[in-house]
């Protein structure tokens, strides 16, 4: 009897879980497997196994520069986001006038489609955009517009604009759940503000920064729409994958091999990143 009801309960749990599992396996796991198999097939054929798609990509010098570019872009954007988010969170914590408005402002880059954000940034930083007009107006020695669009620093800036909210939000919420007594104690103990920040606040909010910056890093690593329209000649992995199937005839096997390399790199980088930051925060 007992066993029967246990079995029944397991059955109910499983049937409740079923829709989620079907969705996961049908829309994620199976397509992933299709990609794996496709990457091991010769181009355009449904039989035979080969590693040539991986080797032909990885043996080029371009592969290394693409991977380095992807990694560098996402890491710089993450670091920039952390710096910016900590400053922003320290300010917003004080609940100055209009802090609600700035809290919502912080979310804007994540609510609007990435394409639109990139379009706006391209217009703003273009040679006729307001940024260059301002710079040329304020500094008389700048005669030519500064080239920001379609350069690596420009891309880093765009990435940061689009993905900093992850870091900013978790940093802010970590900062707000901090016990004010701890700071007061440090203050009473005679630490100056810089020391309080450096040795008390920062270590305590490190887990929050870590969680958010991982999200920023992952989003920046997988970024697709921004480099697609704002990357110019710089193609990170995601665009490189898309370009393979944008060709006629589409090179599905080559694209799949690159996608697998990207997914594996993502997992490896994440593991290393988490490990480094965990050690730091300890």
């Amino acid at each position: 009897m007992r066993r029967g009801s246990n079995l029944r309960s397991t059955g109910v749990t499983l049937s409740l879980l079923l829709p989620g599992l079907v969705c996961f396996f049908g829309l994620f796991f199976y397509p992933m497997m299709v990609t794996v198999v496709r990457s091991l097939r010769p181009e355009g054929s449904d039989t035979g196994w080969t590693l040539v798609n991986y080797i032909s990509f990885l043996s080029t010098t371009k592969a290394r520069s693409v991977i380095v570019l992807t990694f560098m872009l996402s890491l710089s954007a993450t670091l920039l986001s952390i710096l910016f988010s900590v400053a922003l969170a320290l300010i917003l914590r004080k609940k100055l006038g209009g802090h609600r408005f700035f809290r919502l402002t912080m979310l804007i880059p994540r609510v609007v489609p990435g394409l639109i954000g990139a379009l706006g940034l391209l217009l703003l930083f273009g040679s006729r955009g307001w940024f260059n007009l301002l710079v040329m107006g304020v500094f008389p020695f700048v005669e030519k517009p500064i080239q920001i669009n379609y350069t690596v620093p420009g891309l880093i800036l765009f990435y940061t604009w689009l993905y900093f909210p992850f870091t900013a939000l978790t940093t802010l919420s970590a900062l707000e759940s901090l016990d004010p007594g701890i700071e007061e104690a440090a203050d009473v103990a005679g630490a100056n503000k810089w020391h309080v920040l450096r040795y008390v606040i920062l270590p305590l909010i490190m887990p929050g920064i870590l969680a958010g910056s991982v999200l920023t890093f992952m989003a920046a690593f997988g970024a697709f729409s921004i480099p697609l329209i704002a990357g110019g000649n710089y193609r990170p992995l995601s665009v490189e994958i898309y370009k393979q199937i944008d060709l006629t005839p589409a090179r599905w096997s080559a694209a799949s091999a690159r996608a697998m390399i990207m997914a594996m790199l993502q997992v490896i980088f994440l593991t290393i990143y988490m490990r480094i930051l965990r050690r730091r925060s300890r």
Partner: peptide, 13 residues
Amino acid sequence: MIPPIAYALGIAQ
């Protein structure tokens, strides 16, 4: 967690 482009390829196929 995985970049959408990676499984979007499989979904497309």
